[in-house]
Design a binder for these strands. Structure first.
Lengths: 135, 135
DNA sequence: TTTATACTATACTTGAATAGTATACTTTGG
DNA sequence: CCAAAGTATACTATTCAAGTATAGTATAAA
């Protein structure tokens, strides 16, 4: 059970932007270089963050990326969901028809997993990037 | 971020054994059939559970598997770790040399992930199979 | 003591996912 | 209009998950 590399890169990119003055626009190339992230992959991830409303992009000469809101309003949960979609700890919680018992609702293991999943989401929500950028 | 299929099967197998009278030995084939788990895969998983001291195996005619301890002493964490190894939410927490910032200890994101990982482990430990088998 | 049963060990296979790359295109400031 | 910077989409290589196969070992019972 692990977060993927793209999510890790996304954390770094958002943290990077959070440490800049509000509204500051920087090129993907610069973030990629400073955070040691492969450039093309960085662009791909930034597009995901952009689509999720976490960053804003500016095209053309002098373009780049900036945070779309204040760091305090961005949590680790937002970033995880932007990159890998919502956390689903067990496939049955997404697709009950795949549950080999066909009784997810009554299965105590799945109820427990659901509660664990909730705990993970709550915990991810606790961390915002203003706090992270200052600690 | 998700648990794998083998872990899901393992939960079912342990739950199955937990519902039987203490010490009762059943063949892998029966567990596999009743829980809709591919037989060969079930054997593989049961070996992992056996190696972790969660179940005991008996070879030869009349052999099979039984729990190695009482259901109350087996938690979801035990089963997860038996099948997929310890929970590591982010690769940097396992292999700091892979961290592209090379400063895991000082990185606030990694500290946050570590605390989330702890929370997951604590939560997994809360659920034992006696409780699960009765709810 | 042979035989059928049931677990063990290890290696193999297939398909999907991860991580990253490439090509062609669009927008924009100077 | 052109160079810089992001966008869209498709491709590739490697790894991992999930499952299968083959050969072997232990044991109860006939």
């Amino acid at each position: 059970m692990r977060l993927n590399q793209a999510t890790d890169y996304a954390f770094r990119a958002v943290l990077h932007l959070s440490r800049l003055p509000r509204g500051k626009v920087v090129e993907a190339r610069l973030i990629a270089e400073e955070e040691h992230i492969p450039m093309r992959f960085m662009l791909k991830i930034l597009r995901l963050l952009s689509r999720a409303g976490i960053v804003e992009s500016y095209r053309g000469v002098g373009g780049g990326y900036a945070l779309a809101k204040s760091p305090a309003e961005i949590t680790m949960k937002d970033v995880v969901e932007a990159v890998e979609g919502p956390v689903h700890i067990n496939r049955c919680l997404i697709a009950p028809e795949e549950c080999n018992k066909r009784n997810t609702a009554k299965c105590s293991v799945h109820k427990a997993l659901y509660s664990i999943q909730q705990a993970i989401n709550d915990k991810l929500k606790e961390y915002d990037f203003e706090t992270l950028s200052k600690s």
